[in-house]
């Protein structure tokens, strides 16, 4: 990489966590909990990823955080989020883009503002302003079926960005995309996030993706999830694909793989 040495700066340290979870317990069957006494804290303005194997209840965790499910015990606190009748208003971005086929790009992105009571005209104007910087210029009056998968995810992200307060929950948003589109969207997300600096909790099963994007990676090693092992990603920003080749990157990846039990402990790297 370049000769510059950049130490990661602490981001918007306000002391208040963006998201705080305490003692969360939940399971679909009472004798088989998915989460048991889980504590989780995401500092405000940070990009945090959760890496876990499939079937560990990642999406369920997001639904709990979004208030779509009620925990058996424990509390979820989101800074600055209003509690609505159906859930708390956070920017939830589901795995599928879930765009409404009867709405244009502009109206799809504006739905959150509309639901919050903003006049339709005003909401549409706000969306229109943001389209260019999200790489969606010229798509305002297009319908979802006229867009590629990658573009649809951009619209979905914009919708979450406008709907949420300070916290965005992204649930494997790029997992259904082909590798090329995915890498360009990762780059895109980094750029957009650098600009808006929302608190992001990102779920993925792709370790490279998690390391490339995040300030911190939380590893869920065993079911039921009792704790998430935090790992600080002290790689300099802005990051590019170059980053994934850095020595540090590989070192961190190896540690995560070991925690997930994918490789043996003889693989080198730090102690855990």
């Amino acid at each position: 990489m370049s000769g510059r040495t950049i130490t990661p700066e602490p981001r918007q340290e306000t002391g208040l966590p963006g998201l705080s979870v305490q003692g969360l317990t939940y399971g679909f069957e009472s004798d088989k909990p998915l989460f048991e006494g889980l504590d989780l804290e995401v500092p405000k303005g940070q990009f945090v990823s959760i890496v876990a194997a499939s079937g560990m209840g990642k999406t369920t965790l997001f639904r709990l955080l979004a208030g779509l499910l009620q925990p058996e015990s424990g509390t979820v606190t989101v800074a600055g989020a209003a509690e609505g009748p159906g859930g708390r208003s956070i920017g939830y971005m589901p795995q599928r883009d879930c765009l409404m086929p009867w709405r244009t790009v502009q109206d799809n992105a504006a739905i959150g503002l509309e639901l919050a009571g903003m006049a339709r005209r005003e909401a549409r104007r706000k969306v229109l302003e943001l389209l260019p910087e999200l790489g969606l210029a010229g798509t305002a009056s297009k319908y979802p079926h006229e867009l590629s998968g990658g573009m649809r995810q951009r619209v979905s992200f914009l919708r979450s960005l406008l709907a949420g307060g300070e916290l965005l929950l992204l649930d494997e948003p790029f997992s259904a995309l082909d590798a090329m589109t995915r890498s360009s969207l990762q780059q895109w997300l980094l750029e957009v996030w650098e600009k808006h600096r929302k608190t992001i909790l990102f779920i993925t099963h792709d370790i490279d993706e998690a390391l490339l994007l995040s300030d911190q990676v939380l590893v869920a090693a065993s079911a039921p999830i009792r704790k998430l092992v935090p790992m600080m990603v002290d790689l300099p920003r802005p990051r590019t694909y170059e980053t994934t080749l850095a020595e540090n990157f590989v070192y961190l990846k190896r540690r995560i793989l070991r925690q997930l039990g994918r490789i043996g402990s003889s693989g080198g790297g730090g102690d855990e």
Binding site: R63, A66, G67, L68, A82, G84, P85, G86, G87, R88, S89, I90, Y92, P94, R96, C98, M100, I111, G112, L115, A116, A163
Partner: peptide, 14 residues
């Protein structure tokens, strides 16, 4: 589509 409904609920839709 149930997922769209959930998404709208997560945005506070009544």
């Amino acid at each position: 589509d149930k997922e769209i409904g959930e998404l709208l609920r997560s945005m506070g839709a009544g």
